Simulated scan of single mutants.
Amino acid sequence: MTRPIKAQLVKYSRLAHERGLTAAFGGNLSIRRENLVFIKATGTVMDDMTEGQVAVMDMHGNQLSGVRPSSEYRLHLAIYRLRPDVKAIAHLHPPYSIVASTLLEGELPIITPEAELYLGRIPIAPFRPAGTEELAKVTAEALGSVDATIMARHGIVTVGRTLREAFYKAELVEESAKLWYLTRKDR
């Protein structure tokens, strides 16, 4: 059971880096299976991630593997606790989304029919320091019943029933941010 889950995390982590949705050590993906959470290990670069760099923890944050989970594990746990329907999370650092969060408050405007259909709304959560309980709380609250949010000056979080679903929602958020930025009249 754990090998296919780890293989998915490796595949989509590398894809996120390849598509410019994150760089260097940034970003992390996770999958929840019952009471277990599989997440990128701390210090791992998504571009060359291996199955050995997938940490496993329980829903209480107890480390169950030989590698430590990402410093953003609190964020993932807060979302899983608030949203039992969520089975996978993509937290990435795409450039247009981060730029949009410095220029907007409230929400990112929805431009395309696809974003309207699959995302509905893209709220912007207020800035809180990375890896903190405060960031986990404001981001989980911003998600509420939507499947995507932008974290001010930090990145994005998307959720889904599968990692594939969460990943492609992340691409939609970044496309939305890019289109919004490119259509701004004051550029």
Rank of each mutant, 00 (worst) to 15 (best):
Q8R: 12
L9I: 15
K11P: 00
L21T: 08
T22N: 12
R32G: 07
R33C: 09
R33P: 00
R33A: 11
R33H: 11
E34S: 15
N35C: 00
K40R: 15
M46R: 03
T50S: 15
G52F: 01
V54R: 00
A55N: 06
V56G: 01
S65W: 06
V67L: 11
P69D: 06
I79T: 11
R81S: 13
A88E: 04
I89F: 07
L92E: 03
L92I: 10
A100M: 14
T102R: 05
E107P: 01
L108D: 06
T112R: 11
P113Y: 12
R121E: 14
R121P: 02
P123Q: 09
I124A: 10
I124C: 11
A125H: 03
A125S: 14
R128Q: 15
G131T: 06
T132E: 08
L135A: 14
L135D: 02
V138I: 14
T139R: 02
A142I: 03
G144N: 12
V146T: 15
I156F: 05
V157D: 05
R161L: 10
T162R: 09
L163R: 03
R164F: 12
A170P: 08
L172S: 08
E175K: 12
A177L: 03
A177P: 01
A177D: 04
A177N: 02
K178M: 14
L179G: 00
W180H: 10
W180S: 04
L182Q: 14
K185I: 13
D186G: 02
R187C: 01
